[in-house]
Design a protein around this nucleic acid. Structure first.
Length: 684
DNA sequence: GGCCACTTCTC
DNA sequence: AGAAGTGGC
């Protein structure tokens, strides 16, 4: 076996580490002998090299998958590489495989890489097929009546729930797998953690059991227990009532379609019983599944949204560069109990309730005004379910940069949120033992507590628990000031551009990037934070990739562009990705669609061209030049066409032809810089 | 049944 | 902050 005549197939596992409802695996099994392959090429992720806890999870999950595959008759071949595509080629050569199957991913890096894989391998005579294993509906299946992608979650999700056809029913695991010949394809031993990480990782194993069958158990537990109370409990900071499925879902250990189907069954059951609370719980839980879907949807339709501000203004936001603040936030020593409890939980468990994620990250951006990339990076390193699409959506949401998100100039008060999400202070007491004896009345604002109360609780503010690192009132003023500075800088930059400086000040003034603070070994540094309020604030202007500007600062040009885009949808609808005028096009978008082609009949990519509208050279500087802003006037919803302002200067003078130089790998051969976000976002 | 004040929630 | 929902009159 394994001779090219018989032609075994490669099933390339990525974030679909399961044997159940895995369409790529099923296709492989159907077509004969299978080589199950996992390639560890973290450098391809560039800036988003997987964090410590993610790597821990992958390691466990792969071991689990391997043992499942062994019980079915084969095993998992693991490969270490810095270039997945060449690794695939090599495996194909050494196994004589003639087919490659894999499941879709929607993050921008994967879209590009997978497209390239398809091209390269097809050229080598390999039959490549890819499948949907991650979503209820593929992103291009969900659109409004005019074929345009939705720009708000609500619209998107309503459509998903009222689609004329149901999501595919989950597939059963294969009964048996015929192994391909891997005798000339030795596996590499993968290293997922270094010595310094082992200690911290050991803690994780106490709370979490990665692996697809454990994911299945977690689902069952949730369906039979917390789900029915989900709506009642959802406002609590306590995570005990959540499903705990997100890391499992991130690594594809469980199929979202299976989750959906089983939850739906419960819904019907409870509906028949007239259990209103149960029904509502289901709706709310499904909504959080929907958000995950939406994050992929956004990533697919607007692949740059993670990398850079979609509208350029935020790159002029004067971020406060203060490692002391950053450290205080990480250590949970900001002086705001709810924030601090969250940060301690995150560190201890790799987990945080969704609500609390919003609290700590919006505190980070709006109160501390730290460069948000620091925060995202920290999340990336510490969250077990770190997920590029979901995290990008989350940070955009809290930054108020989504059409339906919050506004940037609104600061939520952690004190009030504390009483909302943790009315009895239990959550704070669990994670902040130093406050354990403080009465509930003061638990979320100890700085107001009478001295006698503090004394009785054994608290000395500024000593064993900090005073607020920044007062909320001061933060509000500072935020206003920062925003007005942002507008001034933006205007200055625009003026410079109008005076003929090609790319304006923006990029050059960014040439001193805000480096990420040297490694953050939080467990090492336990010395108390000194809170030195106000003075010595250092601000930096830098594109911190806060995705886009809030609707309050909608630019006039955007409306125009969106109209233009709308028209172009019809004009170019018939196009198939390979036809487009690539020179000016958003490459990844193209890939994003092209990549899916193998599994689609060629009918419609309904909104494929939405963000593909060609733009003129004026548009190519739109990001910096289009600055006339106006205040929020109520009804105007920005059309989510950010691509318009950033694509063409993204790849200036790019040569054409999808086939030749279409990939980042080719253009950025140093793979660790493959998606160095800053580079990409700079011109030239 | 309609109107207004009050509450709740916003991905 | 503003919309949508709730409940009183």
């Amino acid at each position: 076996m394994g001779m090219s005549g018989s032609g075994c197939s490669i099933v390339w596992f990525r974030r679909d580490l399961r044997v159940e409802d895995n369409p790529a695996l099923a296709a492989g099994v159907r077509s004969g002998a299978v080589v199950a392959l996992f390639i560890w090429a973290p450098e391809e992720e560039g800036h988003y090299y997987p964090g410590r806890v993610s790597r821990w999870w992958v390691k466990q999950s792969l071991a689990h998958l391997d043992s499942s595959l062994r019980s079915l008759g084969t095993s998992l071949v693991t490969k270490r590489s810095t270039d997945s595509v060449s690794c695939l080629l090599q495996v194909i050569k050494s196994t004589g495989a003639t087919q490659l199957f894999f499941n879709h991913l929607y993050d921008p890096i994967s879209l590009v890489r997978d497209h390239r894989a398809k091209e390269v391998l097809t050229a080598e005579g390999v039959a490549v097929r890819s499948f949907n294993a991650d979503l209820l509906y593929e992103p291009w299946e969900v659109h409004d009546e005019e074929g345009r992608p939705f720009t708000t979650f609500t619209g998107f999700w309503e459509k998903c729930l009222s689609m004329p056809y149901d999501p595919e029913a989950p597939l059963l695991p294969p009964k048996r797998i015929i192994p391909g010949d891997v005798s000339r394809c030795p596996a590499d031993t993968l290293v997922f953690e270094d010595e310094s990480e082992k200690g911290s990782n050991a803690l994780l194993a106490r709370a979490w059991s990665p692996g697809w069958s454990n994911a299945d158990k977690a689902l069952t537990t949730f369906l039979n227990g917390p789900l029915i109370e989900y709506s009642k409990n959802r406002r609590k900071a306590d995570s005990a009532t959540t499903s705990f499925l997100s890391p499992h879902l991130h690594f594809g250990e469980i199929s979202v379609r299976k989750v959906f189907h089983l939850v739906r069954i419960k819904q019907v059951l409870w509906a028949n019983e007239g259990n209103v609370a149960g029904e509502e719980s289901v709706n709310l839980f499904l909504k959080s599944i929907g958000l995950r879907e939406y994050s992929r949807y956004m990533s697919f339709n607007h692949p740059y949204s993670h990398e850079r501000p979609l509208l350029g203004h935020l790159k002029y936001f004067p971020w406060v560069v203060d490692e002391g603040y950053f450290k205080a936030w990480r250590q949970g020593r900001t002086g705001y109990p709810l924030v601090d409890a969250g940060m301690r939980e995150l560190w201890a468990t790799g987990w945080l309730h969704d609500r609390i994620r919003v609290v700590v990250s919006s505190f980070f951006v709006k109160v501390l005004q730290l460069p948000w990339r620091w925060g995202m990076k920290y999340f990336w390193d510490t969250l077990l379910d770190a997920d590029l699409e979901s995290d990008a959506l989350g940070w955009q949401y809290i930054s108020g940069t989504l059409p339906d998100g919050r506004e940037f100039d609104r600061i939520d008060n952690p004190q009030f949120e504390g009483y909302k999400f943790d009315p009895n202070g239990e959550y704070v007491r669990r994670w902040l033992p130093e406050l354990a004896r403080l009465p509930t009345e003061w638990i979320h604002h100890p700085w107001n507590a009478p001295e006698s109360v503090l004394q009785a609780a054994g608290i000395e503010l500024g000593s064993n628990y900090p005073l607020p690192i920044v007062e909320i009132v001061a933060a509000k003023a500072r935020l206003q000031e920062a925003l007005s500075q942002m507008w001034q800088h933006e205007a200055a930059s625009r003026a410079a551009i109008e005076n003929g400086m090609e790319e304006g000040l923006g990029d050059s003034s960014e040439s001193t990037p805000i480096a990420f603070p040297s490694e953050t070994h939080m467990e090492m540094d336990n010395e108390p934070i000194r809170n030195n309020p106000t003075n010595n604030i250092i601000r930096h202007y830098e594109d911190q990739m806060v995705p886009s500007m809030t609707s309050s600062f909608l630019r006039v040009e955007d409306e125009e562009t969106s109209i233009e885009l709308r028209n172009s949808v019809d004009n170019s609808r018939a196009e198939v990705p390979s036809n487009i005028n690539v020179t000016e096009e958003p490459r990844r978008e193209v890939h994003g669609h092209a990549i899916m082609q193998a599994d689609r009949t060629n009918d419609a990519f309904p909104h494929t061209n939405f963000s593909r509208a060609r733009r003129n050279s004026e548009d190519s500087t739109a990001e910096s030049s289009s600055s006339s802003r106006r205040e929020r006037d109520g009804g105007v919803v920005p059309v989510w066409s950010p691509s318009s302002s950033s694509y063409s200067d993204q790849f200036p003078g790019e040569d054409n032809g999808i086939g030749t130089s279409s990939s980042y790998l080719q253009r950025h051969p140093q793979s660790h810089q493959l998606l160095n976000w800053r580079r990409l976002s700079q011109t030239g």
